[in-house]
Simulated assay, not measured.
Amino acid sequence: MDIIKTSKDLVEKAEEEVEKGLEVVKDTFHNVASHLPLANLAKHHNDTFTIEVDLPGVKKEDIELKVEDDYLTATAVRKFKNEVNEDDYYLCESDFGVISRSFILPENIDRDKIQAKFEDGRLYLTLEKLESKKTKNISIN
């Protein structure tokens, strides 16, 4: 009987540890996701796609865009820092550091025609399909 009780106790303890581990993983993913810049994705009927990436507090010259393999990556450095340093008081509500967001590019996107515009804290990316993959109307004779 002691073996059965001990086995049940071990199973219950293992289940509790797994649940704690899952909570830690969930909290970690939430923390990472809260530091990613938000993005809006849209597909248009004229064979283009747009991606809008929110980058408040970032300057245009602090943004780097690159295509590597099948990934389009926007990396930026945010340098905003609200710091108060008084005799008996220190406050630093900072929002600075490197932020990055990557997007998988489908094979039908023309990597040479990616366009980027930065305006009012938002990065606008326009992607076009390869000419050979664009929708074509066929006339009927």
Rank of each mutant, 00 (worst) to 15 (best):
K133I: 02
A74Q: 02
C92H: 08
T135S: 10
I138L: 12
K133D: 14
I63A: 00
K26F: 12
A14G: 01
F80G: 09
D95E: 13
H35L: 13
D9I: 03
V84Q: 14
E16T: 01
K134W: 06
F80V: 13
I51D: 04
K5Q: 14
E19N: 11
E107Y: 09
P106I: 07
L38S: 15
I63M: 08
V67L: 06
L123G: 10
E83V: 15
E93P: 00
S139L: 14
S132V: 12
A39E: 02
N85G: 02
L105Q: 03
L36G: 00
I104R: 15
L22R: 05
N137I: 14
I109V: 15
E64S: 14
I99C: 12
D95I: 04
K66V: 02
G57K: 05
F96Q: 08
F80D: 14
T73E: 04
A74F: 05
A116E: 11
E119P: 00
K81D: 12
V32C: 00
D88C: 10
K66N: 07
C92R: 14
V53S: 09
Y89R: 08
D88R: 10
T75I: 11
H44L: 14
H35K: 08
V24S: 10
I4L: 15
D70E: 12
F49P: 01
N108P: 01
A39V: 08
N141I: 11
R111N: 02
K136H: 10
Y124M: 10
T50W: 08
L130V: 10
E131N: 04
K129D: 03
D47T: 02
S100M: 15
S100Q: 12
V67H: 05
T135F: 12
D47M: 06
H45F: 12
D54G: 05
K133F: 04
K133N: 13
G21E: 11
V84T: 10
I51E: 13
E52M: 03
D47Y: 03
L123C: 05
K66Y: 13
I140W: 13
L65W: 03
A33R: 07
L36C: 08
I138C: 00
V77Q: 04
K133G: 00
D69Y: 09
G57P: 06
I104A: 11
L127F: 08
D110Q: 02
K81Q: 03
E68A: 04
D9T: 06
L41I: 13
K59H: 05
L41G: 01
N141E: 15
L72F: 12
D62Y: 08
E12W: 07
D9W: 03
D120F: 11
L123F: 07
R78K: 15
K5C: 03
F96G: 00
K129F: 10
L36F: 13
Y71I: 06
E119V: 13
H45C: 06
L36S: 03
L91Y: 14
D69C: 04
D54M: 08
R78W: 02
P106R: 10
I104M: 06
N82Y: 15
H30A: 15
K136A: 12
A33L: 13
Y90D: 09
I109Y: 09
S139P: 00
P106A: 11
G21C: 13
E52G: 03
N82P: 01
T50L: 08
E23Y: 09
A39W: 06
F118E: 04
N82G: 09
L10K: 06
S102T: 06
A116G: 03
T48L: 02
Y124V: 04
T48G: 01
E12Q: 09
L105S: 04
D95V: 01
L55M: 12
E131G: 05
H30C: 07
V25T: 07
